[in-house]
Amino acid sequence: MKKFFVLLCTTALLLGCQPAPKVSEFAVHYEQPRTLKPFTLEDQHGAPVTTEQLKGQWSLLFLGYTHCPDICPMTLAKLTNIAEQLKPYQNVSVWFVAVDPQRDTQEKRKQYIDYFNPDFVAASAPHNVLFPFVRDIGLIYAINNSDQPEYYVDHSASIALVNPQAQLAAIFKPEFKAGEVPVINESQLIEDFKVIVPGQ
């Protein structure tokens, strides 16, 4: 058995076969992508967005809210750069999923996303629609004390990657450093993306 294994390995090397590249510790790659359940959200123009809008291209989905003091603006700025850097390699759609529908009206979402990139989708919906969708893409959020004038929304700082068949393909996780806001690493996400997604 040992001789057979050595022969197999030697043959693989001679043929130029190498193990498939792996993603970093900051990415969870689902080799068997999960098909998303049907959904209907509303974008920043008041138009419905459904599973169909995710088909035909790769998409990066990020949760947030327009009153977010740090993670959301920092991550959206990074996603703007990432989308630009990936453009020669693969055109990517970016969705900002607003999880504070009480304050994040259509007009507010449009004003907010236009500051970063008007081509991004800024979608939301009532919680009974929003929460199941967010859970389906492997993320989570929670709102406490929403009866107060000012309140915070706890939400995932990770980014979901959806493939052109509207299936969850991966989740990119943020870096956690002492004393710093947890946000994604741009260059690492791009490297992991290129491992998961075939180039043009």
Score class of each variant (00 low, 15 high):
Pro101Gly: 02
Cys72Ser: 02
Leu76Arg: 01
Val99Gln: 04
Gln102Met: 13
Asn91Met: 07
Val97Met: 00
Ser93Thr: 10
Lys87Val: 00
Asn91Cys: 00
Asn91Gly: 10
Glu84Arg: 12
Leu86Asp: 05
Ile71Cys: 02
Tyr89Gly: 05
Pro73Phe: 14
Glu84Asp: 11
Lys87Leu: 05
Thr75Val: 06
Thr80Ile: 11
Cys72Val: 02
Pro73Cys: 13
Arg103Pro: 10
Ala77Gly: 15
Glu107Val: 06
Thr75Glu: 10
Val99Phe: 11
Gln90Arg: 11
Thr105Val: 10
Trp95Leu: 00
Phe96Thr: 01
Gln85Trp: 10
Arg103Thr: 04
Arg103Gln: 07
Pro73Thr: 12
Leu86His: 07
Ile71Leu: 05
Lys78Val: 05
Thr105Trp: 12
Gln90Ala: 05
Trp95His: 02
Asp104Gln: 09
Pro88Ala: 15
Asp100Trp: 08
Thr105Pro: 11
Val94Ser: 00
Glu84Ile: 07
Gln85Val: 05
Asn91Glu: 14
Ile71Thr: 01
Asp104His: 06
Pro73Met: 15
Lys78Asn: 11
Ile71Lys: 05
Pro88Leu: 13
Phe96Leu: 02
Val94Leu: 00
Ser93Val: 04
Gln106Arg: 14
Gln106Met: 14
Glu107Ser: 06
Ser93Lys: 15
Val97Lys: 01
Tyr89Val: 04
Leu86Asn: 07
Asp100Ile: 09
Thr105Ser: 14
Val99Leu: 08
Val92Asn: 03
Arg109Lys: 07
Ala98Ile: 03
Ile82Tyr: 06
Val92Glu: 01
Val99Trp: 10
Thr105Gly: 12
Asp100Gln: 07
Val94Lys: 00
Met74Asp: 11
Leu79Tyr: 09
